[in-house]
Amino acid sequence: MTDDRYVDRVAVVTGGSRGIGRQTVERLARDGYRVVVNYAGSKSGAEDAVAAVAAEGGTAIAVRADVADEVAAVFDRAEESFGGVDVVVHAAGRMALGPLVDFDLAALDDLHRTNIRGTFVVDQQAARRVRPGGAIINFSTSVVGTSFPEYSAYAASKGAVEAITMIVARELRGRDVTVNAVAPGPTATELFLDGKDEQTVARLAAAVPLERLGTPADIAEVVAFLAGPAGHWVNGQNIRINGGLV
């Protein structure tokens, strides 16, 4: 059931074609948001997300853009189609793992371009355009705290995301716009599972006190809380959503 508090609210979700981003699209649409689904490469996944929202009576559109360069077009489309932007969920990201001693510097540059520059570019547009009462939600990772081996490049990029988030929250003083980051732990997404054998996945799941991997729905529920009126007193925070992993 649509909540009257969300009538006429518009959300932009980057990386909305799969994983946590896709789940977030559907979760916000259930609250009544009109959703702009940004994607980079998976047009079919974005179209599937739009179709899933429509099947539940919601409204969504898909817009392709590279978050590190072309994201202004996504915000332009949101304003042209729906009149403005209230919530930005920046879920797009890249992961590459390996020991620092052997890590390919070209892969490092690609990782940081998407995760650091992408966050900077998306937040820049969001800071200019999100309406009063709105929210900006970035994605970090619990690995910034757990410091697992082979995550140095990825964790470094997400540490930058956390720094950007805290500073933008303070720069938007007086705008009535919250800025937070969520930091998932091991979550059963394609991005997380890629390249991991069953033994590694089982070990990571067992490390969590709840003894399971997280799900995209676990993360999307927290994002929806931060996006909505109930979470509007939460600002300038990084929230680790990881089942108690330390």
Score class of each variant (00 low, 15 high):
residue 1 M to R: 04
residue 2 T to G: 02
residue 2 T to C: 07
residue 4 D to A: 14
residue 4 D to P: 13
residue 7 V to L: 09
residue 12 V to Y: 06
residue 14 T to Q: 02
residue 15 G to F: 02
residue 18 R to N: 06
residue 23 Q to L: 11
residue 26 E to G: 03
residue 28 L to E: 06
residue 31 D to M: 12
residue 32 G to H: 07
residue 32 G to L: 04
residue 33 Y to D: 03
residue 36 V to G: 03
residue 37 V to Y: 08
residue 37 V to R: 12
residue 38 N to Q: 09
residue 39 Y to C: 10
residue 44 S to F: 07
residue 44 S to A: 15
residue 44 S to K: 14
residue 46 A to C: 15
residue 48 D to I: 00
residue 55 A to N: 10
residue 57 G to A: 04
residue 58 G to Q: 00
residue 59 T to R: 03
residue 60 A to E: 06
residue 62 A to P: 03
residue 63 V to E: 12
residue 66 D to N: 13
residue 67 V to F: 02
residue 70 E to M: 02
residue 70 E to F: 00
residue 72 A to P: 04
residue 74 V to H: 05
residue 75 F to D: 08
residue 78 A to N: 04
residue 78 A to W: 08
residue 79 E to D: 14
residue 81 S to E: 15
residue 83 G to Q: 08
residue 85 V to A: 07
residue 86 D to P: 00
residue 87 V to H: 05
residue 89 V to P: 12
residue 89 V to F: 14
residue 91 A to T: 11
residue 92 A to V: 00
residue 93 G to L: 11
residue 95 M to V: 02
residue 95 M to K: 00
residue 96 A to E: 15
residue 96 A to C: 12
residue 98 G to T: 05
residue 101 V to E: 15
residue 107 A to W: 01
residue 109 D to Q: 13
residue 110 D to S: 09
residue 110 D to Y: 05
residue 111 L to T: 10
residue 111 L to V: 02
residue 111 L to Y: 10
residue 113 R to N: 11
residue 115 N to S: 08
residue 116 I to P: 00
residue 116 I to T: 13
residue 116 I to D: 02
residue 117 R to E: 08
residue 124 Q to D: 10
residue 124 Q to A: 05
residue 125 Q to I: 02
residue 126 A to N: 09
residue 126 A to I: 04
residue 127 A to H: 09
residue 129 R to N: 12
residue 129 R to D: 08
residue 130 V to L: 05
residue 133 G to D: 07
residue 133 G to V: 04
residue 134 G to E: 04
residue 134 G to S: 09
residue 139 F to I: 01
residue 139 F to Q: 07
residue 140 S to G: 13
residue 141 T to E: 10
residue 141 T to A: 03
residue 142 S to C: 13
residue 145 G to A: 14
residue 147 S to L: 14
residue 147 S to K: 12
residue 148 F to S: 10
residue 150 E to L: 08
residue 152 S to E: 14
residue 153 A to V: 11
residue 153 A to F: 03
residue 153 A to Q: 01
residue 157 S to L: 07
residue 157 S to E: 14
residue 159 G to I: 13
residue 167 I to T: 15
residue 169 A to K: 13
residue 170 R to E: 11
residue 173 R to M: 11
residue 175 R to A: 08
residue 175 R to G: 05
residue 175 R to K: 14
residue 179 V to Q: 01
residue 182 V to R: 07
residue 182 V to W: 02
residue 182 V to F: 06
residue 184 P to Y: 13
residue 185 G to R: 09
residue 189 T to Q: 10
residue 190 E to D: 15
residue 194 D to N: 11
residue 195 G to S: 11
residue 195 G to N: 06
residue 202 A to N: 03
residue 203 R to G: 08
residue 205 A to D: 05
residue 205 A to V: 06
residue 206 A to H: 12
residue 206 A to C: 01
residue 207 A to F: 10
residue 210 L to T: 05
residue 211 E to L: 15
residue 216 P to N: 09
residue 216 P to R: 07
residue 216 P to M: 06
residue 219 I to E: 11
residue 220 A to H: 04
residue 224 A to K: 00
residue 225 F to P: 01
residue 226 L to N: 01
residue 227 A to L: 11
residue 227 A to T: 00
residue 227 A to V: 00
residue 228 G to T: 04
residue 230 A to C: 03
residue 230 A to R: 04
residue 230 A to K: 05
residue 231 G to D: 07
residue 233 W to G: 01
residue 235 N to M: 05
residue 237 Q to S: 10
residue 239 I to M: 09
residue 240 R to M: 13
residue 241 I to F: 06
residue 246 V to L: 10
